[in-house]
Design a protein around this nucleic acid. Structure first.
Lengths: 145, 145
DNA sequence: ACGATATAAATGCAATTGCATGTATTGTCA
DNA sequence: TGACAATACATGCAATTGCATTTATATCGT
């Protein structure tokens, strides 16, 4: 009846992937929140901006890097700017656009969050796998775009 | 300086897991929405209720099965009931509680959604992996709680 | 049996997200 | 050049989610 084959194993792998990701993300976000830190998406955005260095990033670049909606980036930037982790500049090359750049405070937050984030990754993810598992996982996941 | 070891490979695996899950979930949800279907969480909830059969499930059981917050289940149930996919009964064994049961319409939705869901899983996940990959993935992910 | 505590579920309110649309600027091409 | 289409970003409004609290019932310890 099915026009496309899909084995039980494949369905199981899908179900476990979704569940594991949800479960671990929830646990890690919880740990970070308990430690008084902002949500992971702030960390991710600041990390992208830090990697972009002094020339910063256009909102649409951040959008593609983070798989967010356009309005999501617009509002995330608003919040990060309001608390001083990011600055917004007008874009010389494109009058429609702007440039986002991480501030010193933003970099400081990244530095302060990383130990807690690292510990959470170990506790909820890395600590449950062998090094070979992690390697294999990374290899397979790379195929999933 | 780090009290807990975390290799680059482990961090890479973590990053890819989160990104892959987000990306695929977004794509699959998008496909389903385009096809006019409700969100995946409705499917998951109805599937749990269908598996529970005629005796149904207590909201807190659904909560644990789905990794949702208590109020999330409460409101999800409200919505599913409002459109007739679920019925709510009072619980004889526990005066505080209730029992949720899938309706015929709910079962019909599951049946109608599955082909689209299956196709989306193939398109965005299973089709990008070998069978061995899927097997390996399922095995490794099982270790993650 | 009774008071204290724990569990089941709902809900008011604030924050966030999704959707649709609006505004401004740039690019395209006849 | 001058329309027309595409891109970049913002935003009003509705829906959803998160948080804190409330209500009701059950369970536990004495």
């Amino acid at each position: 009846m099915s026009t496309t084959a899909l084995s039980d194993t494949q369905v199981l792998a899908w179900a476990r992937l979704v569940r594991a990701a949800q479960s671990m993300l929830g646990a890690i976000e919880g740990d970070l929140k308990t430690a008084g830190f902002p949500p992971l998406v702030w960390y991710d955005a600041l990390l992208e901006l830090k990697r972009a260095g002094t020339c910063g990033l256009r909102p649409f670049e951040l959008q593609h890097a983070m798989l967010l909606e356009q309005y999501g980036v617009s509002r995330l930037a608003d919040r990060l700017i309001k608390v001083g982790y990011v600055e917004r500049f007008e874009c010389k090359e494109d009058g429609r656009g702007q440039v986002l750049r991480i501030t010193a405070a933003g970099r400081a937050l990244l530095k302060k969050m990383w130990p807690a984030y690292r510990a959470a990754i170990v506790a909820h993810f890395a600590g449950k796998l062998t090094c070979a598992d992690a390697e294999t996982l990374a290899t397979i996941l790379a195929k999933l775009k």
